[in-house]
Structure formats: structure tokens, C-alpha cells
Design a protein around this nucleic acid. Structure first.
Length: 322
DNA sequence: CATTCGTCCTGATAGC
DNA sequence: TGCTATCAGGACGAAT
């Protein structure tokens, strides 16, 4: 399940394969994967064919490739850089993958969209979007100017442009421009449970169900803790925890960078080793066990999602106030 | 306005 | 064995 670390692994891998290459042809094998593109599949393809990918950037779990349009007039001054006006947007959803493949590689079972790129020595010619559950999708969006320094999210040199469809997404905890003060201020105004807030991409981005449970476990906080009672230090603790667990996952995903394809399963090797809460229902809490306390990780439904907690070190809040 | 809930989708698995 | 029911999850738009 791609959350921030997995999407960042994809971004880092992809940028080296596609930057500066032109999209020669687009093949949509399943129109359901073209989401939110109001003008339809034909328009989607028309926007992309002949365009050149200038970068791969990210905000939260949204990933996009700014495009230089070959049909747009060149700037009067040749020294002036060309500025992309639209971008190919991708969200991986639950099961989306962006893979670089040689033309001879058989189609994946759930191949949804194929992009044929201008040839480049030593590089695969196809970018493929593969998605089993179709929660992810692709579309073309316009780029709008932003005064906050661009997409961020560990991108190297983002233009001060953001995909319109990602403009409402907050920065992620790994983003150097992430503001804890702004996060805490907004968090305190909410009247909801802490996990719900962590999953709200408009408040803080990149965190999904897995890393939310992990961050709460590390911070020893319960998912239902009312956000308007959180002390500054507690909010700092859960944010630091989220940052730590996602950095660990990012480091684990980084091992596949030199593979020929862009790995979207950066978490696969990581899952087994480092998860302390997610998926560990019925197993002992490692932190409690180390302290000689017997505690079993419990799985409960919260927001129609499964939530994993230790009943001893993450006690449920009583009456909202602590 | 803020918050919550229903919806999209497929494959693995459990239960009869 | 073969059927049906259940579950997993991100993000948006509708409903409250």
C-alpha cells in the first residue's frame, strides 16, 4: 500500500528514467484508470502525445510530471526557460505501480496505461501504469503558480508551480518546509480523533493507515485521542514518530533504486522487520515485552479501517481529557 | 463552516 | 468442490 515512503521511492527511481524524454504514444487499456479527467480519454491522450517530461515531483501521495508542450510557442528570448503548463498526474491508490519496461516484456496482468517514450540508450522505452484494484489513476492537470516554494516533498529543485489537483494537499513531515506550528494550530481547532487528523491529507500529507498506526504506537498515543486536548509536546511526539518511521521505510525502499524497474513495493522488505503495530494483532507489544510487561496488540475498527494499538502503552482516553 | 459516511474496485480467504 | 460473503484501503463528494 503506497504511502509517502513508497511514493517517494517511485519518484526518485522514475525521475532518472523519464526526465527529458518525449511521450511518443499513449495506449489506454482500461479507461477506468483515467480518473478525474473530465474531457475523457481522447483528450487525455491528446494532451500527452508529443509532450516532454521535465521532472517528477510530489506533494503527499500525489505524483506528477510537468510537461513541456511541443506545440506551445517558444519564448521570445531563447535564454528564457520553457515553463510547463500542464502535468501528467498520478495517484497510486492502493495498488498502483509505475514501471519502466522494455518493449519486449509481456504486458502485466493489470496493465492499464502504456506510454511509449523517445528512445534513449540503455533505458527501457515504456512507462507502464499497472493497477490491480483501480483505486489509483492518471489524469492531466494544469500547473498553477504557488508562493510557497513549489511542491517540496524532498524534490530537488521544484518550480514554484503546483498541480491544481494537489494544491489543497498539505506538506508532509519529511518536507523541509513543513511547519509544525501551522500543523499544531490547525490540529487544536479540530474536534476529532487523532488518527483521523493524521490521515487528513489537507492537514498533514503522506500518512496512510499503516504509518498512522506506527506513529501512534511510537508516540504512545491512542487513535481516538481528541485533537483539541493534545498538548504541544504530544503533537510534536506523534509528528516526530511519523517522520522517523517514514524515514526508516524510505531507507529500506532505497535498496532497489538501481533495479531496472521503478519499485513501488518499497515497503515489502520493510514490513516484516520494522512494523510494531500494524498487522501485529494477537502478538506481544515489543516495547512492553522489553519492560517485562505482558501486553497483546489489539485490532479494532475505527473509521471503517483497522487500527492496531497496545492496550497498555496506548491507553484509550477517558472523557477526552488527560 | 467542519465532520462523517458511502463509494469506487479486485483478489484472497473464510465459511457453508 | 463451488458458491457467496467479507475484507483491505485513499480520496472525494454527498449528507449531516
Amino acid at each position: 500500500m503506497p504511502e509517502l515512503p513508497e511514493v517517494e521511492v517511485v519518484r526518485r527511481g522514475l525521475v532518472n528514467w523519464v526526465r527529458g524524454r518525449t511521450i511518443h504514444a499513449v495506449e489506454v487499456l482500461d479507461p477506468r484508470s483515467i480518473r478525474r479527467h473530465a474531457l475523457g480519454v481522447e483528450d487525455f491522450m491528446g494532451n500527452l502525445e508529443g509532450a516532454t517530461v521535465s521532472d517528477v515531483v510530489r506533494r503527499g501521495k500525489f505524483l506528477w510530471m510537468p510537461l513541456l508542450d511541443a506545440t506551445a510557442p517558444l519564448p521570445d528570448n531563447p535564454e528564457e526557460p520553457r515553463v510547463p503548463g500542464v502535468a501528467l498526474m498520478a495517484h497510486l491508490g492502493m495498488s498502483g505501480q509505475l514501471l519502466m519496461q522494455d518493449a519486449g516484456v509481456p504486458d502485466e496482468k493489470h496493465l492499464k496505461v502504456r506510454f511509449r517514450l523517445s528512445p534513449r540508450e540503455g533505458m527501457p522505452d515504456q512507462l507502464r501504469f499497472v493497477d490491480q484494484r483501480i483505486f489509483g489513476g492518471l489524469f492531466v492537470t494544469t500547473l498553477i503558480s504557488t508562493d510557497d516554494g513549489g511542491p517540496g516533498g524532498l524534490a530537488e529543485s521544484p518550480l514554484p508551480l503546483i498541480a491544481e489537483e494537489a494544491a489543497h494537499i498539505a506538506r508532509d513531515p519529511l518536507d523541509p518546509s513543513f511547519s509544525f506550528d501551522l500543523f499544531y494550530q490547525r490540529l487544536r481547532k479540530r474536534r476529532t480523533g487523532l488518527k483521523r487528523a493524521l490521515l487528513d491529507q489537507g492537514l498533514v500529507s503522506g500518512i496512510g493507515n499503516i504509518y498512522a498506526d506506527e506513529a501512534l504506537w511510537r508516540a504512545k498515543l491512542h487513535y481516538a485521542r481528541p485533537t483539541d486536548t493534545l498538548r504541544r509536546g504530544e503533537a510534536q511526539r506523534v509528528l516526530d514518530s511519523a517522520r522517523e518511521v517514514m524515514l526508516d521505510a524510505l531507507a529500506a525502499g532505497g535498496t532497489s533504486f538501481d533495479s531496472l524497474y521503478v519499485n513501488v513495493n518499497g515497503a515489502s522488505g520493510y514490513f516484516d522487520r520494522s512494523l510494531n503495530a500494524y498487522g501485529r494483532q494477537g502478538e506481544p507489544c515489543r516495547r512492553c515485552a522489553a519492560a517485562g510487561i505482558h501486553a497483546i496488540i489489539r485490532r479494532e475498527q475505527f473509521m471503517n479501517r483497522s487500527s492496531h494499538t497496545c492496550p497498555v502503552c496506548q491507553p484509550r482516553p477517558r472523557n477526552g481529557r488527560w
